[in-house]
Design a protein around this nucleic acid. Structure first.
Length: 437
RNA sequence: GGAGAGGUCGCCUAGUGGCCUAGGGCGCCGCACUGGAAAUGCGGUAUGGGGCAACCCAUCGAGGGUUCAAAUCCCUCCCUCUCCGCCA
């Protein structure tokens, strides 16, 4: 379940409109409402029959303890009453189970309504809310006059022996890049740099999660059943390779209740990410813009509901800090309802400028899920000490994904002589200010 | 991988078919006593669902089964601990 039944009953109109805005079928909302009514009816009937049966059973126990014969007339009558109730319960429960299964099916098809400030429409309605830095031109003025053309990242990397796509294809398959030499060190440097900034400066707690998760976790964040095709599966052990650290880190607190003073809880996690990218064949085949395995530093927040709106802005800003320190030009997009995804309430994408391929590359996606994800995973908190638990709000965002950031660095910091300047922020980690042949 | 022992209300623990409507201790909250505290006493202290409410239903690792009735008996699975094997 993702949309809450209470909310479904209380504000069906808003949920219906939310479905329409996201391009989903709104009639599902009414079908779910009808089934919910049926469910409550059946549940009430079943519960009162169970109460009857419990009373009868208790009386049998009392009678026997008081000295009645276990097969005496008094007990036989009671036993019959209990058996009869049991039979009717079984009939009702079968119907109830079918109803609940059907209802759950429908609820999974109701999207999380977008926040009121999200533009309605498809990708063309996405708004650029701000840009930072100036996108470099492909043709760069040369000191002595004229221009030189910036090369795409795969050419820069190959010249400097930082990347080996062919051997990656040999040992695993296409889309599994091998980073070599200073390329490998650049990976480590970026991971280290990002984790250091988010922990030491932004106060997040570092998590180093497993790279495989079980089915319950995959279900928790909605990877299955919806997106099973996107994941690598290990059927023999019933495990899934993580497509993002969001999956293990959000599930970290599945079925838990935070105490009042524990929130917010803010994690940052590095993990490799594995994506089959089925259906994307032919797109971005060159270089490392779309690969099956990449590395990412991910931020995952658990917030009090009243704080989540502001938390999304802060979260997005923390990802921006990384790009700013790396000196990469980027823009922030507020995603429109039909382009933001089924489960997000509000989402910003960060796109970095890659002057070699002359494209904006998505390196981060920062989302507020409100209580939608938390409901599926039963992650709650107590608003006051001793109060009834309520669902937390969850947020996450990349801070940031490596492969495309590496591409942007290679294309932004390449020099006319073929060497690469190391961004100042990375120099302490790379132990050099320049990579040359 | 093999053998054994376990998984009970935040923590520890009692519980071998009905007196379990899960008992006790610790912790926590409230009240009383106190100048204030400690100690002590009394009461309260899980989650989900249904009901206007009184209250009812479900949950003793998970899921099935036997029974009028399951924490308790049976089956399957998961996890933890100890020992052995293997291994970075």
């Amino acid at each position: 379940m993702s949309i809450g039944l209470a909310r479904l009953r209380e504000e069906p109109d808003r949920i219906r409109q939310g479905a329409i805005d996201k391009g989903e079928d709104p009639s599902v909302v009414d079908a779910a409402l009808a089934l919910e009514g049926k469910r409550r009816q059946l549940l009430g009937d079943s519960d009162s029959l169970k109460a009857e049966r419990n009373v009868a059973s208790r009386r049998i126990g009392d009678a026997i303890r008081a000295g009645a014969a276990p097969n005496g007339p008094e007990v036989v009558v009671l036993r019959q009453a209990s058996t009869d109730a049991g039979a009717r319960i079984e009939t009702l429960n079968a119907e109830l189970a079918a109803t609940e299964a059907e209802l759950e099916e429908l609820l999974l098809r109701i999207p999380n309504p977008a926040d009121p400030d999200v533009p309605v429409g498809d990708a063309s309605a996405n708004q650029v809310v701000r840009t930072w830095g100036a996108p470099l031109p492909k043709d760069q003025p040369r000191d002595g006059g004229g221009t030189w053309p910036r090369r795409p990242h795969w050419e820069v990397a190959e010249t400097l022996r930082m990347l080996d796509l062919e051997r990656g294809a040999k040992i695993t398959g296409s889309g599994f890049p091998v980073y070599t030499g200073q390329g490998s060190r650049l990976q480590r440097a970026l991971i280290d740099f990002m984790l250091d900034v988010h922990t030491a400066e932004h106060g997040m707690t570092e998590i180093w999660p497993p790279a495989l998760v079980n089915a319950a976790s995959a279900r928790g964040t909605g990877q299955i059943p919806d997106k099973e095709d996107l994941m690598y599966v290990v059927p023999r052990d019933g495990l899934y390779l993580v497509p993002t650290a969001e999956v293990p880190v959000t599930n970290f607190h599945r079925n838990e209740i935070f105490e009042t003073d524990e929130l917010p809880v803010r994690y940052v996690a590095y993990s490799p990410c594995f994506r089959r990218e089925a259906g994307a064949a032919g797109k971005d085949t060159r270089g490392i813009l779309r690969v099956h395995q990449f590395d990412k530093v991910e931020m995952v927040f658990f917030e009090k509901p009243e704080a989540s709106t502001e938390a999304l802005e802060w979260l997005t800003g923390r990802a921006e800090v990384i790009l700013q320190r790396l000196g990469l030009a980027y823009r922030v997009l507020l995603m429109a309802t039909r382009d933001m995804g089924f489960v997000q309430a509000k989402k910003y994408d960060l796109e970095v400028w890659a002057p070699g391929v002359e494209r904006w590359l998505e390196v981060s996606s920062c989302s507020n899920f409100r209580d939608y994800q938390a409901r599926r995973m039963a992650i709650r908190y107590r608003p006051e000490p001793g109060a009834k638990p309520e669902l937390v709000h969850t947020l996450n965002g990349s801070g940031v994904a490596l492969a495309r950031t590496v591409a942007a660095i290679l294309e932004t910091y390449q020099q006319p002589d073929g060497s690469l300047l190391v961004p100042e922020a990375l120099q302490p980690y790379m132990h050099t200010d320049r990579v040359a042949r």
